[in-house]
Structures are given as structure tokens and as C-alpha cells.
Design a protein around this nucleic acid. Structure first.
Lengths: 233, 233
DNA sequence: CCGCTAAGTCAACGGTGTTGACATATTTGT
DNA sequence: ACAAATATGTCAACACCGTTGACTTAGCGG
């Protein structure tokens, strides 16, 4: 009867998988934890109402993370070189971990099985194939690079969360107390203490990616030394 | 008066940092979670008594993990080549993550700052220096390899825990349902589905280590092409 | 219009880390 | 050697978490 043709009379809060996921991502973007109670508060509904749309928290965070991956995949510039695409994916994964730390934390544990994950896998496999790798090496390197990206970017965001809980600064994580080190017991640490103090998570992460991508190129050249460059795209 | 000269009359359960850590490692070795209540049960003491020896759970798990690293470092055969030593360290870290999953899970988050961690860092720095890397590259590669070992071995044990909670088999984690994949939407996944199905966590992890070690050798040769082999030990 | 099902609400359970008040053992100061 | 002080173990309770079951209600199909 009323103008609203769809659903009206919302004495009850109206949820959906979509609205719940959106609320969850908003929560994490604000650095807050994803909890059923917080979710309920943000949605103006009873916390347990979420259970009508997701079997348990695991399924919820899976779906949320798949959505993140989907977005990341879409942001990759597919016209750039294979190497640049993987690099972009790595950086996007890093940024997503920073933006949604409380979800990214257990990303490496889970296999979403959703379109976002499949899309990312497909993209990376395509890139590695374009690099000139053979069937076997394509998936080998995919495994290494994929787990590297997932694990490390997630763990660094976990570090930041832990550091935020306390007062600790994150950059002191790699080497806390550079000065008070027993030089006789740990001579190498003492000798490198200056460089160790300058290590930052970002640098390490990106360095690792580049090292792995270099290895991909080397492997591709070893496989087909002459045609290696022809496959470029 | 009694024969026991040190501490006698133990009407109370007598705890110490040592006995608590031992109990914690025993718990994780049996696949159980480290909780104050479980700890209290294993020690025959009130759970909260642990708080007299560790400020909070964070400090406890830090100390426990440092002990693990200490043991790992001691098991490395220091007479073997630098490459073999790093490889051993990686494998030991992996095995420790399997043996003590509930502690290793958040290993990459924490910096123990204890002798175990420092010892491992020192060992790796020494190895990389022996490989012929310069000051700067030594710590760069240390950062990459260290975070790789920590993050991935820990995350794989986390996967196993999560899989054990459900009935899921762990080997299906990399590619769950190889058959039901939309080949038009994800052509690369579909093309590589056979190889993807054969991916195992162990293989991926070890492959990654070897790739990184290869990169170390390449970097060392690039730095000092002629003397590269002389530094070997 | 009836009845069925999907969805929101409410109260409660068991498990977690953590705290504060209390009791007792052990060490220290003189 | 005895009293004071400190360290350590005990107990009850709190807040927070995911999760469940019983209920109520909204909305749709016959």
C-alpha cells in the first residue's frame, strides 16, 4: 500500500549477507574487531541475527576476505607487464591487510573458495605463464609467491595490531634494543646492529617480492633461454 | 633440618618460570591449547598462580617461543655450509611449528628479545656473511628469509589447527574442489588444476627456501664475482 | 484466510584472559 | 631469633568472546 514497493515496515532490522559484510569491513577499516556484538550494534540488530545469514564466524570472515580479494584483483592494471601485475597484487594485498587488519590476520589460514580468491589465483597463474614458465614451475612459483604474499602481509598487520594494543612502536619490532647487545655472544648481530635498526617491514616485504620475481625470470630463462623474451606481454 | 637443603615443605605447588614453560611446551606438544586453566591443571596449582611468574599470556608465550628457538639453534650443525645451515634452521622452524602449533601460531607477531631469538638471528647473519654478501645485503636478505621462515611455517601450523577443528583435510587447502571450476571464468586455474591439486605445503615451503637461497648466491656473486667462492666455509 | 517458513530477539552457556582481595610461605633486617 | 616485609599460591569474580535453543514475528504460497 505504501509507496515503498519492496520491503517496508521495518520494525525489525533488515539484514542480508551484503549488508553484514559491508558492516564487517567498515568495522575493520576503523581498526575495530569483528565481533557478533559489534556487528549487531553497527547494524542496529540483535547480534545473533547474523547467524541467520552465516553459519558461524568462520564463514563470515571467509566471505569478507574473499570480497577484499575480489576488489584487489579488480584494481590490478591488466595492461601492464606480468611482473608489474604480480607486484601490484602484492602491494594491494599489503594495503588491504593494513586497512582490514582484524580480518587479514587469519587470512593465510583460510581458503575462501570464493570468486575473489579464484580470480587472484587465476591472475597470478596467468602472469607466471606469461613470464615463460612451464606448467610445473607455474604452480610451484604460484605456491611460493602466493603463500609469501598472504602470510607476510597478514602477519605484519597482526604485528601492528599487537603493537597497538600495547604502546610499542612497530618499527622497533625488528630490533628492539640495538644498543644493549652482548657483542661477544652475538657478534654478527652487534656488527650489523646499525643496518638492523633501519630494517622496516615495508622494505623487507617488497624486497622479498622482488627477489621472488627475479627468481621467476631466471627460471623462465633457464627453461627456454632463447624464447624467453618473446612471451612478454 | 631435613635432608633437603634448598626448598622443602611444599604444601603449596611450587612453580617457577622454568616449570611453567615446560608445562606449556608439553601441552602444545600434545596438541592442546595453552590456557591458564590447563596450565594450572597440569601443574597442580591454581591457574592464576602463573601470573606471579609472567605478567600476562603474551610474556609467557614469548618466553616459550624463545625457548623453542634456542633449542632449534642448538640443533643446527655449524660445521656444514652456510646454505645448509640456513636450510636446517628453516626445517627446524617448520618442525617446531608442527610440534608446538598453539605457540607457533603467533610467533611471527612477537619479538621475544630473548637469547634464543638473538642466537638464531646471529646464526643467520653469520651464514649470510659467509655467503659473501655485503653489509647491506646481509640484513636485507636476513629480513626476507627470516620473515619467510617465521611467517610461513607458523601459518601452516595454524592451518593445520584450523583444519583439525573441523574435519577438513589439510592437503585439500590449496585447491579444494579441483573439478567444479568454471573454466571460462578462470581458464588458468582450470588449465593448471592437476598440478594445483598436487601442491603440498611442505613442497611449497622448501621450494621457497631454495629459491631465496639461490637468490642469495646470485647476489653474492654479483657483488664480488671473482672472490665469491673463496669465502665459502 | 490459514499456515508455513525465514528472520530477528532474548536469555543463557561454556570458555577465555585478567583482576583484586585474601592467606600463607619465605626471606630479610636488625 | 623474632618481627616485618615480601613473594607466592588461592579463591571468587569480571568482561568479553562465539554459540545455542526457545520464542516471536514478518512475509509469502496455497
Amino acid at each position: 500500500m505504501a509507496a515503498n514497493g519492496r520491503t517496508q515496515s521495518r520494525r525489525r532490522a533488515q539484514l542480508s549477507r551484503d549488508s553484514i559484510l559491508e558492516a564487517a569491513l567498515t568495522l575493520t577499516a576503523e581498526g575495530e574487531q569483528v565481533t557478533f556484538r559489534a556487528l549487531g550494534g553497527a547494524l542496529g540488530a540483535d547480534p545473533t541475527a547474523v547467524y541467520r545469514h552465516f553459519r558461524d564466524k568462520d564463514e563470515l570472515v571467509r566471505a569478507a576476505y574473499d570480497r577484499i580479494m575480489e576488489k584487489a584483483r579488480a584494481e590490478v592494471d591488466e595492461s601492464s607487464s606480468w611482473r608489474e601485475q604480480i607486484r601490484q597484487l602484492a602491494i594491494l594485498s599489503w594495503e588491504n591487510s593494513e586497512q582490514h587488519p582484524h580480518i587479514a590476520v587469519d587470512a593465510p589460514i583460510l581458503t575462501t573458495g570464493g570468486p575473489g580468491e579464484l580470480g587472484c589465483i587465476d591472475l597470478m597463474l596467468g602472469c607466471l605463464r606469461a613470464a615463460g614458465l612451464g606448467d610445473r614451475d607455474v604452480v610451484r612459483f604460484y605456491g611460493v609467491i602466493g603463500s609469501y604474499i598472504l602470510s607476510i602481509s597478514a602477519n605484519i598487520s597482526a604485528q601492528k595490531l599487537a603493537a597497538a594494543d600495547q604502546g610499542t612502536d612497530i618499527n622497533t619490532a625488528w630490533l628492539y634494543d640495538v644498543s644493549g647487545i652482548d657483542a661477544t655472544r652475538y657478534p654478527n648481530v652487534a656488527a650489523s646492529r646499525y643496518e638492523l635498526g633501519e630494517l622496516s617491514n615495508d622494505d623487507v616485504y617488497l624486497t622479498g617480492i622482488d627477489v621472488l620475481l627475479d627468481a621467476v625470470e631466471a627460471a623462465a630463462q633457464a627453461e627456454a633461454p632463447t624464447v624467453a623474451r618473446a612471451r612478454q606481454r
